[in-house]
Design a protein around this nucleic acid. Structure first.
Lengths: 243, 243
DNA sequence: AGGCTGGACTGATCCAGAGCAGCATTTCAC
DNA sequence: GTGAAATGCTGCTCTGGATCAGTCCAGCCT
């Protein structure tokens, strides 16, 4: 065992059996450790970057800003997730990333990634798989915004977060610690903060979920799944076919 | 000149200078020509597939279906676009694809793609670039649903379609031929068909766009851009950095 | 020619969710 | 410890867009 298992290693290992070479290469991605204060804007929309980050601890969110100042959060990143992987391969980013809490992350340079992929092809497919999973999540968020009511949206969102966190060993069936404010939820779900509050209260009163004091508790997991039509298929896709 | 320039070639060439080898490999992708009737479901959510398609003529749409039967259209595909590229690399698809009109397409097998990428690396990056652009469009649709009003959404959507079609030589600044029904628009924009109709009428009365008889005419292009906050950045990103 | 179908269009009604304004509580800076 | 921000919570009003329940028109088929 080279290093203490990182959340990313844990996540990838759940889907692809990584060889020792893969694990060593992955460990090399974790050399430059950096930390950021809560609220720090890590990636700027429209700017070019030469590095991506692997989130080790803390939460971030990626979002786009509209001319009128409003923002739409596209996704949250939790430990084990990549930040700005796509912006490394392309010259400019189409979205920004901001630290929600204080963050510990590993900075990975473009060259590290390309070299790493060259000598650890299995790792490359694993990372591609993770990227594809992120994309599937964005599509699911699109469906969420387009076709579900505020309560269904919220339920679906919390269940998805729960499933993602469980994979990296944070939280379990009963719930998880969650540093998001109701403003974050509003920006992600396309609702007003006031309405988020009401929806949360209603779900709590119905005995479905409780989101208070930085903790989400699933009071009636099956009920939530039924309400939101949550289906983990898009999260649990089989690993890549690519040899 | 090997073959008549396909829409895909045209699109990729606008961003990456393709070599003769690239062009030959690309031409080999076009060997199996197939056609489908309007309304045919080409890719089924949850099923595995061993082939993708390159759209040569006609329109398609990719969508997800909810338990209650409603659907959310994620994106439309126009000539030059790939269908199901991701489902080739991964075992199952998370969405379905349906032909909107009668379609002419080239079927590409997984092996063709992988072999092709191996001996034409520049082509590989070009295709990756196209895939990344598709992803950026999905993100933009997310913002559209989450933060824009019905009219802004419609304006933004029509402008995006116009820009995409222009790139493959269909339509120009003044407008384009569009086979979509108002039901398609409703399913894509998260609105009811009735409301789509009202929004279109209003935009027409304001002298902004006219969508009638299968044709979209931009009556006041600048006005539409201003209304929707349309910014082509996410469509015009520079080509890939990957060598 | 008559009947049928699919899409465009309209008006009336209803409700989910926005916006605003105000208050309570916690957290933090100094 | 005290004032100032954040953050959470609530009641009220108002509106954007959904839903229902149709009409109208242009191809189709037979």
């Amino acid at each position: 065992m080279l290093i203490l298992q990182s959340p990313l290693t844990r996540k990838l290992s759940a889907f692809v059996a990584l060889s020792d070479t893969d694990l060593e290469t992955l460990a090399r991605f974790h050399r430059r450790r950096r930390s950021f204060l809560a609220g720090h804007q890590m990636i700027h929309e429209g700017h070019g970057t030469q590095s991506a980050f692997i989130l080790a601890d803390g939460w971030a969110c990626s979002y786009k800003t509209l001319p009128d100042g409003e923002r739409q959060i596209v996704d949250f990143q939790v430990p084990g997730d990549f930040l700005g992987l796509r912006s490394v391969l392309f010259r400019t980013t189409d979205h920004s990333v901001e630290a929600v809490t204080r963050i510990e992350a590993s900075e990975v340079m473009t060259s590290d990634i390309l070299d790493g992929f060259a000598n650890a092809p299995r790792l490359a497919t694993a990372v591609l798989w993770a990227a594809s999973r992120d994309e599937a999540m964005v599509v699911e968020h699109l469906v969420n915004l387009g076709r579900r009511s505020a309560e269904e949206r919220m339920a679906h969102f919390l269940l998805e977060l729960g499933a993602r966190l469980q994979l990296v060993g944070i939280g379990d069936k009963t719930g998880f610690a969650c540093p998001l404010t109701q403003y974050h939820l509003a920006d992600a779900l396309g609702l007003s903060a006031v309405h988020v509050n009401r929806v949360l209260r209603h779900l709590r009163e119905e005995g479905l979920v409780t989101f208070q004091k930085g903790r989400v508790s699933f009071d009636d997991f099956a009920g939530l799944v039924a309400l939101s039509g949550f289906d983990t298929d898009y999260l649990d896709q089989d690993g890549p076919l690519l040899r």
